[in-house]
Nucleic acid binder design. Structure first.
Lengths: 228, 228
DNA sequence: GCATTTATTTGCGTATGCATTAATCAATGC
DNA sequence: GCATTGATTAATGCATACGCAAATAAATGC
């Protein structure tokens, strides 16, 4: 069996560095949703000229994180509850397919070590009530699941959308009860993959994501978190 | 019910013009898969300076049509049978979801006029054995179906991937029998949407795309069309 | 005081120049 | 003859410059 490979990280150029920096600034809220920023302003902030910033902005626009509006500045796109619905629908379908494919791939327990570890990490985080750690491990679970699905298009699409989901989850992380039951699903999915039961892997994961979607949407709407 | 809207076309700048031109050159085979091209060469070809070309290339890279390899030139990405498998898997899932959503949306016959027309157009094209016209109408059917699904993320993802599918289909269009049966599926999907039968719409469309996937992959492999 | 026109500012899109650095080629040593 | 190292070339990545057009401010007419 061929080794499963992730996305090879491209080397450092100012432009790619700018991509990373801008993403960080967006996720940390330094650049808040809806806010406008001139290219020159961002260039100053990142200590580089307009050119690489501009290139970075173009790439981020292609990924749907922001929007360039000539003479208005680049606008960090707010993520509404409706957006989150759309995003979750896509992620749900593609991850479920990945789970199905992973189950069909006939992985050995060894191949599934990483996935299994993330579940353990979530258990640990939950017992400590460490939500941040849980979220981080949950991200790793989903990323690893998608990786095991062995479809590079799905990997990059989901990775892109996961960025947006992360923004919304950051807001709601402390607004909801600890996701104690969620790990049952994770284990069930892992188990189905181990058994090669593709239909079950798909079904459980689909239900899992659909449930998560409902929770987050409800929170966003209840707390009027319509932007970001 | 709110009107369904497509993607508004952005105005023309040299960079966006370059995006369009480069895409055209790629689809028409002027820039063949696997070939390398220097930025300066492309700039000459498009009669503009390197800057807008560079920006266009960056955007196209983000869309997965090409790859920039410093000092090697930009490389038009070949699309292998394996790539096509990946692409079809994604498109199948997302379009099927769109069909399901469309069925749930409760569209009137009026809303479905466009979709219906594409089916008629395919029938006409088939009776004339006009494969090009059939392909064009088929594209319209799928685009319209996705539009009716009302998920802008799905729309842009599928549109992106459809570009790649089109490249492969161009090669195989004359290598296979006329897709006489395919329109049965289209009608069945339309019918299910009209009836609001989401499960059927999804199921039929999924099977339809899965079948298409099999046909095209088989052709690509049988004719050793491993690149482009 | 309001509207319309004119002037001014300013951000963007593109062009161009330059330094960096990878790739190629030459030359020398073994 | 082959390999290793040094020199040369050349494409990229970034900075900078500039003109245009849009947005804003000012000014004039009513």
């Amino acid at each position: 069996m061929k080794p499963v490979q992730g996305t090879p990280a491209k080397p450092k150029s100012s432009a790619r560095q700018a991509v990373g920096e801008l993403r960080r600034l967006i996720f940390e809220g330094e650049l808040s949703a809806g806010s406008n920023h001139l290219e020159s302003e961002l260039a100053d902030r990142l200590n580089m000229s307009r050119t690489p910033v501009r290139e970075a902005v173009l790439m981020l626009e292609a990924q749907g994180l922001l929007e360039v509006r000539p003479r208005k500045g680049v606008r960090i796109l707010p993520v509404s509850a409706d957006d989150m619905r759309e995003i979750y629908d896509v992620v749900t379908e593609l991850e479920s397919l990945a789970a199905e494919s992973a189950a069909k791939a006939g992985y050995t327990n060894d191949d599934l070590t990483l996935l299994s570890e993330t579940i353990t990490a979530m258990d640990n985080a939950l017992s400590r009530e460490d939500r941040e750690a849980w979220a981080e491990a949950d991200d790793r679970f989903h990323a690893e699941l998608v990786r095991l699905g062995r479809n590079s298009r799905i990997q990059s699409i989901v990775a892109m959308l996961a960025d947006q989901v992360r923004r919304a989850r950051a807001l709601t992380l402390y607004l909801r009860p600890l996701p104690l039951k969620s790990n049952e699903d994770h284990r069930a999915v892992l188990d189905a993959i181990q058994r090669g039961d593709a239909a079950t892997a798909r079904r459980i994961h689909h239900a899992h994501r659909t449930h998560a979607r409902g929770v987050i949407i409800e929170l966003l709407e209840r707390h009027r978190l319509h932007n970001l």
